[in-house]
Computed example of a mutant assay.
Amino acid sequence: MTLTIVALLPAYQNTNGDSENAAVLRRRAEWAGLEARVVAVDTREQLPARVDAVVLGSGSDSSLEQSRGRLLTMHDELRTWGTEGVPILAVGTGWELLSWGIERPDGSSVEGLGILPGRAVPAPARITGDLVVASPRFGTLVGFENHAREYVGAEGSPLGRVRSGVGNSRGSGQEGVVMGSVIGTHLHGPVLAKNPAFADHLLGVAAERASLAYEPGPRAAMVDEYATAAREAQLGAVRAAAPLARG
Protein backbone atom coordinates (compact mmCIF):
# COMPACT_ATOMS: atom_id res chain seq x y z
CA MET A 1 0.00 0.00 0.00
CA THR A 2 1.15 3.54 -0.79
CA LEU A 3 0.74 6.19 1.89
CA THR A 4 -0.95 9.27 0.43
CA ILE A 5 0.04 12.57 2.01
CA VAL A 6 -2.07 15.55 0.97
CA ALA A 7 -0.54 19.03 0.82
CA LEU A 8 -3.59 21.29 1.04
CA LEU A 9 -3.65 24.58 -0.89
CA PRO A 10 0.10 24.80 -1.57
CA ALA A 11 -0.55 27.56 -4.11
CA TYR A 12 -2.02 29.77 -1.36
CA GLN A 13 -0.76 28.41 1.97
CA ASN A 14 3.00 28.07 1.64
CA THR A 15 4.36 31.47 2.60
CA ASN A 16 6.92 30.04 5.03
CA GLY A 17 7.55 26.78 3.17
CA ASP A 18 5.26 24.87 5.53
CA SER A 19 3.76 22.78 2.73
CA GLU A 20 7.17 21.12 2.56
CA ASN A 21 6.24 19.28 5.75
CA ALA A 22 4.43 16.91 3.38
CA ALA A 23 7.70 16.22 1.57
CA VAL A 24 9.39 15.49 4.91
CA LEU A 25 6.75 12.87 5.70
CA ARG A 26 7.07 11.27 2.28
CA ARG A 27 10.85 11.06 2.43
CA ARG A 28 10.94 9.62 5.95
CA ALA A 29 8.33 7.04 4.96
CA GLU A 30 10.47 6.02 1.99
CA TRP A 31 13.57 5.78 4.19
CA ALA A 32 11.57 3.36 6.33
CA GLY A 33 10.91 1.16 3.30
CA LEU A 34 7.32 2.31 2.75
CA GLU A 35 5.82 3.57 -0.47
CA ALA A 36 4.54 7.13 -0.18
CA ARG A 37 3.42 10.01 -2.37
CA VAL A 38 2.50 13.66 -1.93
CA VAL A 39 -0.62 14.94 -3.65
CA ALA A 40 -0.97 18.72 -3.98
CA VAL A 41 -4.63 19.69 -3.60
CA ASP A 42 -5.87 23.20 -4.39
CA THR A 43 -9.44 22.19 -5.28
CA ARG A 44 -11.82 19.55 -3.96
CA GLU A 45 -11.74 17.80 -7.34
CA GLN A 46 -8.05 17.03 -6.81
CA LEU A 47 -8.63 15.07 -3.60
CA PRO A 48 -7.40 11.47 -3.87
CA ALA A 49 -9.70 8.58 -2.99
CA ARG A 50 -7.59 7.71 0.07
CA VAL A 51 -5.85 10.15 2.41
CA ASP A 52 -3.37 9.01 5.08
CA ALA A 53 -2.02 12.37 6.30
CA VAL A 54 -2.72 16.06 5.64
CA VAL A 55 -0.50 19.14 5.77
CA LEU A 56 -1.93 22.68 5.60
CA GLY A 57 0.60 25.50 5.61
CA SER A 58 0.43 29.21 6.35
CA GLY A 59 -0.47 31.95 3.89
CA SER A 60 -0.74 35.71 3.74
CA ASP A 61 -3.78 37.60 4.99
CA SER A 62 -4.52 38.68 1.44
CA SER A 63 -5.38 35.07 0.59
CA LEU A 64 -7.44 34.30 3.72
CA GLU A 65 -10.86 34.60 2.08
CA GLN A 66 -9.82 32.65 -1.00
CA SER A 67 -8.23 29.89 1.08
CA ARG A 68 -11.27 29.74 3.33
CA GLY A 69 -13.56 29.40 0.33
CA ARG A 70 -11.57 26.49 -1.01
CA LEU A 71 -11.36 24.79 2.38
CA LEU A 72 -15.11 25.13 2.82
CA THR A 73 -15.64 22.88 -0.20
CA MET A 74 -13.63 20.22 1.70
CA HIS A 75 -15.25 20.82 5.08
CA ASP A 76 -16.94 17.41 5.22
CA GLU A 77 -13.73 15.62 4.30
CA LEU A 78 -11.72 17.54 6.91
CA ARG A 79 -14.24 16.66 9.62
CA THR A 80 -14.27 13.03 8.56
CA TRP A 81 -10.48 12.81 8.54
CA GLY A 82 -10.30 14.39 11.99
CA THR A 83 -12.95 12.04 13.37
CA GLU A 84 -11.30 8.97 11.85
CA GLY A 85 -7.85 9.82 13.21
CA VAL A 86 -6.09 10.92 10.01
CA PRO A 87 -3.07 13.03 11.10
CA ILE A 88 -3.63 16.67 10.13
CA LEU A 89 -0.89 19.26 10.68
CA ALA A 90 -2.01 22.88 10.23
CA VAL A 91 0.48 25.75 10.57
CA GLY A 92 -0.04 29.49 10.98
CA THR A 93 -3.03 30.87 9.09
CA GLY A 94 -3.84 27.32 7.96
CA TRP A 95 -4.42 26.50 11.63
CA GLU A 96 -6.40 29.71 12.14
CA LEU A 97 -8.70 28.83 9.24
CA LEU A 98 -9.50 25.50 10.91
CA SER A 99 -10.40 27.29 14.17
CA TRP A 100 -13.63 29.01 15.19
CA GLY A 101 -12.52 32.12 13.34
CA ILE A 102 -10.11 35.01 12.81
CA GLU A 103 -10.73 38.50 14.17
CA ARG A 104 -9.24 41.50 12.35
CA PRO A 105 -8.10 44.83 13.82
CA ASP A 106 -10.88 46.70 12.00
CA GLY A 107 -13.54 44.63 13.77
CA SER A 108 -14.34 42.36 10.84
CA SER A 109 -13.80 38.64 11.04
CA VAL A 110 -13.25 35.53 8.95
CA GLU A 111 -15.34 32.58 10.05
CA GLY A 112 -13.30 29.44 10.52
CA LEU A 113 -14.25 25.86 9.74
CA GLY A 114 -14.61 24.93 13.42
CA ILE A 115 -12.36 21.86 13.20
CA LEU A 116 -10.15 23.05 16.10
CA PRO A 117 -11.16 24.88 19.30
CA GLY A 118 -10.22 28.52 19.81
CA ARG A 119 -9.90 31.58 17.65
CA ALA A 120 -7.26 34.03 16.43
CA VAL A 121 -7.38 37.62 17.71
CA PRO A 122 -5.23 40.66 16.85
CA ALA A 123 -1.92 40.96 18.69
CA PRO A 124 -0.62 44.37 19.88
CA ALA A 125 2.35 43.97 17.51
CA ARG A 126 3.62 41.37 15.06
CA ILE A 127 5.23 38.39 16.80
CA THR A 128 8.45 37.04 15.27
CA GLY A 129 11.49 35.12 16.44
CA ASP A 130 12.66 31.77 17.73
CA LEU A 131 10.06 29.56 19.37
CA VAL A 132 10.93 26.70 21.71
CA VAL A 133 8.16 24.49 23.09
CA ALA A 134 8.17 21.72 25.69
CA SER A 135 5.65 19.17 24.47
CA PRO A 136 4.62 16.26 26.72
CA ARG A 137 4.17 14.09 23.64
CA PHE A 138 7.05 15.18 21.39
CA GLY A 139 9.69 16.54 23.75
CA THR A 140 11.38 19.85 22.91
CA LEU A 141 10.13 21.39 19.68
CA VAL A 142 11.98 24.21 17.94
CA GLY A 143 11.11 26.53 15.08
CA PHE A 144 10.30 30.16 14.47
CA GLU A 145 7.09 32.10 14.79
CA ASN A 146 5.83 34.87 12.54
CA HIS A 147 2.24 35.88 13.24
CA ALA A 148 0.12 39.00 13.72
CA ARG A 149 -2.49 37.32 15.93
CA GLU A 150 -2.72 35.63 19.27
CA TYR A 151 -4.79 32.50 19.86
CA VAL A 152 -7.41 32.12 22.60
CA GLY A 153 -9.77 29.35 23.66
CA ALA A 154 -7.32 26.45 23.40
CA GLU A 155 -6.10 26.40 27.00
CA GLY A 156 -7.26 22.84 27.65
CA SER A 157 -5.49 21.21 24.71
CA PRO A 158 -2.16 22.90 23.83
CA LEU A 159 0.66 21.32 21.86
CA GLY A 160 3.01 22.30 24.68
CA ARG A 161 4.40 24.97 27.01
CA VAL A 162 6.45 27.87 25.66
CA ARG A 163 10.06 27.84 26.86
CA SER A 164 11.20 30.69 24.63
CA GLY A 165 9.13 32.92 22.39
CA VAL A 166 5.47 33.90 22.56
CA GLY A 167 3.29 31.12 21.14
CA ASN A 168 -0.44 31.54 21.68
CA SER A 169 0.21 34.47 24.06
CA ARG A 170 -2.42 36.37 26.10
CA GLY A 171 -0.36 35.20 29.07
CA SER A 172 -1.21 31.54 28.51
CA GLY A 173 2.37 30.32 28.22
CA GLN A 174 1.06 27.79 25.73
CA GLU A 175 1.68 26.98 22.10
CA GLY A 176 -0.60 25.34 19.58
CA VAL A 177 -3.68 23.21 19.96
CA VAL A 178 -4.33 19.47 19.65
CA MET A 179 -7.67 17.81 19.02
CA GLY A 180 -7.25 14.08 18.53
CA SER A 181 -4.92 13.70 15.54
CA VAL A 182 -5.44 17.31 14.36
CA ILE A 183 -2.62 19.66 15.38
CA GLY A 184 -2.35 23.42 14.96
CA THR A 185 0.89 25.31 15.61
CA HIS A 186 2.76 28.56 14.99
CA LEU A 187 6.00 26.60 14.46
CA HIS A 188 7.55 27.24 11.06
CA GLY A 189 10.76 25.70 9.85
CA PRO A 190 9.32 23.53 8.30
CA VAL A 191 8.60 22.15 11.75
CA LEU A 192 8.87 18.47 10.79
CA ALA A 193 12.34 18.89 9.28
CA LYS A 194 13.66 20.38 12.52
CA ASN A 195 11.76 17.99 14.79
CA PRO A 196 12.05 14.40 13.46
CA ALA A 197 10.29 12.84 16.46
CA PHE A 198 7.23 14.94 15.64
CA ALA A 199 7.32 13.71 12.03
CA ASP A 200 7.79 10.10 13.13
CA HIS A 201 4.76 10.31 15.41
CA LEU A 202 2.53 11.49 12.56
CA LEU A 203 3.91 8.80 10.27
CA GLY A 204 3.40 6.17 12.93
CA VAL A 205 -0.26 7.11 13.23
CA ALA A 206 -0.72 7.17 9.45
CA ALA A 207 1.01 3.82 9.00
CA GLU A 208 -0.93 2.13 11.78
CA ARG A 209 -4.22 3.27 10.24
CA ALA A 210 -3.06 1.69 6.98
CA SER A 211 -2.09 -1.56 8.76
CA LEU A 212 1.60 -0.87 8.12
CA ALA A 213 4.58 -0.83 10.47
CA TYR A 214 6.71 2.30 10.61
CA GLU A 215 10.23 2.36 11.99
CA PRO A 216 12.67 5.15 11.03
CA GLY A 217 15.28 3.82 8.61
CA PRO A 218 19.10 4.13 8.77
CA ARG A 219 19.05 7.05 6.34
CA ALA A 220 16.71 8.89 8.70
CA ALA A 221 19.14 8.42 11.57
CA MET A 222 21.93 9.95 9.48
CA VAL A 223 19.84 12.93 8.38
CA ASP A 224 18.59 13.42 11.94
CA GLU A 225 22.14 14.28 12.95
CA TYR A 226 21.82 17.42 10.83
CA ALA A 227 18.47 18.20 12.46
CA THR A 228 20.03 17.72 15.89
CA ALA A 229 22.86 20.10 15.02
CA ALA A 230 20.38 22.71 13.77
CA ARG A 231 18.25 22.31 16.89
CA GLU A 232 21.27 22.66 19.20
CA ALA A 233 22.42 25.76 17.34
CA GLN A 234 19.00 27.36 17.75
CA LEU A 235 18.71 26.36 21.40
CA GLY A 236 22.22 27.71 22.03
CA ALA A 237 21.31 31.03 20.44
CA VAL A 238 18.15 31.20 22.55
CA ARG A 239 20.09 30.49 25.76
CA ALA A 240 22.70 33.10 24.84
CA ALA A 241 20.04 35.72 24.16
CA ALA A 242 18.13 35.06 27.39
CA PRO A 243 20.52 36.97 29.70
CA LEU A 244 20.44 39.93 27.28
CA ALA A 245 16.65 39.88 27.30
CA ARG A 246 16.58 39.84 31.12
CA GLY A 247 19.10 42.67 31.25
Rank of each mutant, 00 (worst) to 15 (best):
D106E: 07
V110S: 06
G112E: 04
L116K: 00
L116W: 00
G118N: 06
R119H: 15
R119C: 12
A125N: 07
R126P: 08
G129W: 11
G129Y: 11
V133R: 07
V133A: 06
S135R: 10
R137L: 13
T140Q: 09
F144E: 05
E145G: 04
H147E: 05
R149M: 08
G156C: 11
P158K: 02
V162W: 11
S164H: 15
G165D: 02
G165F: 01
R170Q: 14
Q174V: 00
E175Y: 08
V177K: 07
V177A: 01
S181Y: 09
G184Q: 10
L187D: 01
G189E: 04
G189V: 08
P190L: 03
P190T: 10
L192M: 14
A193E: 11
N195T: 09
P196Y: 04
A199Y: 01
A199T: 09
A199C: 07
D200P: 01
H201T: 05
L203Y: 01
G204C: 04
V205Q: 13
A206T: 05
R209M: 05
A210M: 13
S211Y: 00
A220T: 15
A220E: 10
E225F: 00
E225K: 01
E232Q: 14
E232C: 08
A233D: 12
A233W: 13
A237Q: 14
A237H: 13
V238K: 06
A240R: 15
A240C: 07
